[in-house]
Design a binder for these strands. Structure first.
Length: 201
DNA sequence: CATGGGATTGACT
DNA sequence: GTCAATCCCATGC
């Protein structure tokens, strides 16, 4: 039997678009800081917005490895963005973690972010990396038993949350694909929930 | 080896 | 709403 308590493990076995949905509600922990995933996007080598579209390069190599490792890259020269690599080895695909609901180490997050409001700590892919002190040194590290830990939903929150689906944000290619997923009603997403359809209703 | 772009953010008009 | 910061890496000469 497969309980909700191991949803993060099942997510790692799914195709990337389904994995992106299943990961909403799971947790990310680094040291004393952790949060619940409330927003994700799927990226796959078949579409040009994905870094893996260019094939295997020194930068994209982790995307093509076996599921369950991190892909962390620098964005706009400033931010480190965290992805969960999924799909079998040889297939380049990953789930971008776009926002967390802060759970543990909130004061530490406030120090690192230089901001007080709970909704400004992890409400964006660059923000959550800063709040959890995730950097390029974590690229290709395991997410099970590594420095950054992917975990199941918190106790009492095992229900797969209702999701809002919409187009991905901040990209210029393959903008039409509805591969962004937000926990419905969460106030911790990177932007007020997108226009789009509700899933899970 | 030189160049250009980007899965963002925060500050500013 | 607009815009610059900043740096890794993919690409091209």
């Amino acid at each position: 039997m497969t309980g909700a308590g191991e949803r993060h493990l099942r997510a790692l076995e799914l195709p990337v678009v389904e994995a992106a949905q299943a990961l909403v509600g799971c947790t990310i922990t680094h040291g004393d800081t952790s949060g619940v995933i409330v927003e994700t996007e799927a990226y796959h080598e078949i579409e040009p917005a994905c870094h893996a579209f260019a094939g295997v390069t020194p930068r994209t190599k982790p995307l093509f490895e076996a599921p369950g490792i991190a892909y962390v890259y620098r964005s706009y020269g400033i931010h480190a963005l965290l992805n969960v690599v999924v799909e079998p080895a040889g297939v380049g695909a990953a789930v971008l973690i776009r926002a967390l609901e802060p759970l543990d180490g909130i004061e530490r997050m406030r120090e690192r972010r230089g901001r007080e409001p709970l909704t400004e700590l992890c409400s964006g892919p660059g923000k959550l990396s800063q709040a959890l002190a995730i950097g390029l040194q974590h690229d290709a590290t395991p997410l099970l038993g590594g420095p950054i830990e992917l975990g199941p939903p918190p106790p009492g929150n095992d229900e797969q949350p209702a999701l809002i689906v919409g187009p991905r944000i901040g990209i210029t290619r393959a903008v039409e694909l509805p591969w962004r997923f937000c926990a419905a009603g969460s106030r911790h997403v990177s932007r007020p929930w997108p226009p789009g359809l509700l899933l899970g209703w």
